[in-house]
């Protein structure tokens, strides 16, 4: 018989080995100890594994909640902090500031003075008027596919990171108050390998652009769907402009987020990307009507 302390230490070490699928290292000279190890192996059989369906559903739900939490946190940050915290906006603001500062310095140093009299014959300077021959920006925006369905300004087709999948949201840029509206999504695989989507159709959130609050959510489906190379898969949802409490939402600007759950080829893990794919406005109620 070994001392009890030694048995306890050895027992824990042997269990850890058995749990790793290895053999126990103990010399089986102690019948009681050997029997305890055998019983421990019985206890291992009580272990139960989570189902893949449960794991995937819970993961998806948590990712959606995480996005909601992030939206709420972002809302609580002052607008100027938010402005500077977005890399693209920060770059734009800093660039503009530097250009203005540079012009100011040149102006103060009188380096711009000689140019002033010849401004009419000068080439394009820092401050130029728009080229009248260029098409107006609004025309460009109205040149959208699918009749009057438009991707929203400032939201180009969103690429799912590390994949060849592009997601485009089509929605009328201006919706009449309380009029039911349709939102169409296109999932386009621009690569040469298939992309697997899970929980299709995806979860969709409609958020108030001013506050970041989610006003309405469409729950995700449970199907899986593979999109072949160059294939485009469309999906449409109809929204009656009611919020989660069943009340008409207020006029204003709204954003559409999509939770795309896809499987990466590299590690075969499911992951979910939450992307803003479109925005639109609900027009103010016309009191004269």
């Amino acid at each position: 018989m070994r001392p009890r302390d030694e048995n306890e230490r050895q027992f824990a070490a042997d269990i850890d080995r058995l749990l790793r699928g290895e053999e126990s290292l103990s010399v089986q000279d102690d019948a009681d100890y050997a029997e305890a190890l055998q019983f421990a192996q019985r206890l291992m059989q009580l272990r139960d594994e989570p189902t893949e369906q449960f794991a995937g559903k819970l993961r998806n739900r948590l990712v959606v909640k995480l996005a909601e939490q992030d939206a709420r946190q972002e809302k609580s940050v002052p607008w100027f902090v938010r402005l500077f915290s977005r890399p693209s906006l920060r770059l734009a603001v800093v660039s503009t500031f530097m250009v203005v500062a540079a012009v100011g310095l040149l102006w103060r140093a009188d380096l711009l003075a000689p140019l002033s009299p010849r401004a009419d014959e000068a080439g394009p300077g820092i401050m130029t008027t728009p080229d009248p021959s260029a098409p107006p920006e609004t025309e460009e925006r109205t040149a959208a596919p699918d009749n009057d369905m438009l991707t929203m300004e400032g939201v180009p087709p969103a690429a799912v990171p590390d994949t060849t999948l592009m997601v485009v949201g089509h929605v009328p840029p201006h919706a009449a108050y309380s009029e039911p509206m349709s939102i169409t999504f296109e999932f386009r695989n621009e690569g040469t390998e298939p992309v697997s989507l899970a929980f299709f159709p995806p979860a969709v959130h409609i958020r108030d652009a001013a506050t970041g609050d989610i006003v309405y959510s469409f729950a995700p489906g449970e199907r899986s769907h593979a999109i072949r190379p160059m294939e485009v898969r469309s999906y449409r949802i109809d929204w009656d402009q009611q919020d989660l409490q069943g009340s008409q939402v207020q006029p204003g600007r709204y954003m559409i987020d999509v939770a795309v759950a896809e499987q990466t080829v590299a590690d075969e893990r499911w992951r979910t990307e939450m992307m803003t794919v479109a925005t639109f406005s609900i027009e103010t109620v016309n009191s004269g009507d």
Binding site: R59, L66, A67, E74, R271
Partner: peptide, 24 residues
């Protein structure tokens, strides 16, 4: 350190990693 967008992404990735490792 840089940017809210990156911060949110990093936080989410951390949570997803924790879920994948610890949920089972």
């Amino acid at each position: 350190e840089s940017g809210q967008g990156e911060q949110v992404r990093s936080r989410r990735e951390e949570f997803e990693d924790m879920y994948d490792t610890c949920m089972p």
